[in-house]
Computed example of a mutant assay.
Amino acid sequence: MLLLVLLLAPILRFALFLTLPAGNGTNVRIIDLEKGYTPRRIADELERAGIVSSSRLFVIYTRLSGNAGRLQAGEYRFSDAMRPAEILRRMVSGEVYAQRFTVPEGYSIYQVAELLGERRIFDRDAFLRAATDPRLLASLDIDGTSVEGYLFPSTYNVTKKMDEAALIRTMVAHGDKVYAERFAAEARRLGISRRQITILASLIEKEAVSPAERPLISSVFHNRLRKGMRLQSDPTAVYGIRAFGGNVTKQDIERATPYNTYLISGLPPGPIGNPSEGAIEAALHPAQTAYLYFVAKGDGTHHFSATLDEHNAAVRTYLRGEAELRTERPSLTGSR
Rank of each mutant, 00 (worst) to 15 (best):
R224L: 02
E324A: 14
V295E: 02
L16K: 14
G175S: 09
L325Q: 06
P258G: 07
Q288A: 13
D143L: 02
A138W: 06
A9S: 10
P21G: 00
G175Q: 07
D163C: 03
R41N: 14
T19P: 05
R63H: 14
F58L: 07
E86C: 00
E86G: 03
T317L: 13
A113S: 13
S79C: 05
L225R: 11
G273S: 07
F14W: 12
I241V: 13
Y318I: 09
G25T: 10
T301H: 09
P286H: 00
L231R: 15
P211K: 01
A43I: 09
P21S: 10
E164I: 06
P286M: 00
H302L: 06
L308G: 10
I253F: 05
E281L: 10
R63D: 12
D125R: 13
T261L: 08
R13L: 14
F183H: 15
N223Y: 08
I51Y: 04
A323P: 11
L332D: 09
H302A: 10
E328Q: 15
A9K: 05
T289P: 12
R48S: 10
D176V: 07
L16Q: 14
S331P: 15
L203C: 04
V295K: 03
T301S: 13
I199A: 01
L18M: 11
A237I: 06
V220A: 00
T261K: 10
R89I: 03
R70Y: 12
A287F: 02
Y291T: 11
M229K: 02
G300F: 08
M82P: 13
I204M: 09
I142V: 11
S65C: 04
E75G: 04
I31G: 09
T159A: 11
L231A: 04
A49W: 03
M1E: 05
G23D: 06
G300E: 12
Y259W: 15
G144T: 00
G245Q: 15
G298T: 01
R316D: 03
L137W: 03
G23K: 02
L128A: 01
L6H: 08
G191W: 11
E186W: 08
A22Y: 04
L20C: 09
N274A: 11
I217N: 01
G25C: 05
I60A: 11
L46E: 00
P271D: 06
I142G: 06
A290C: 01
T249V: 01
I264N: 05
P104S: 01
T301R: 10
A290G: 11
S54T: 07
L225C: 06
R169F: 00
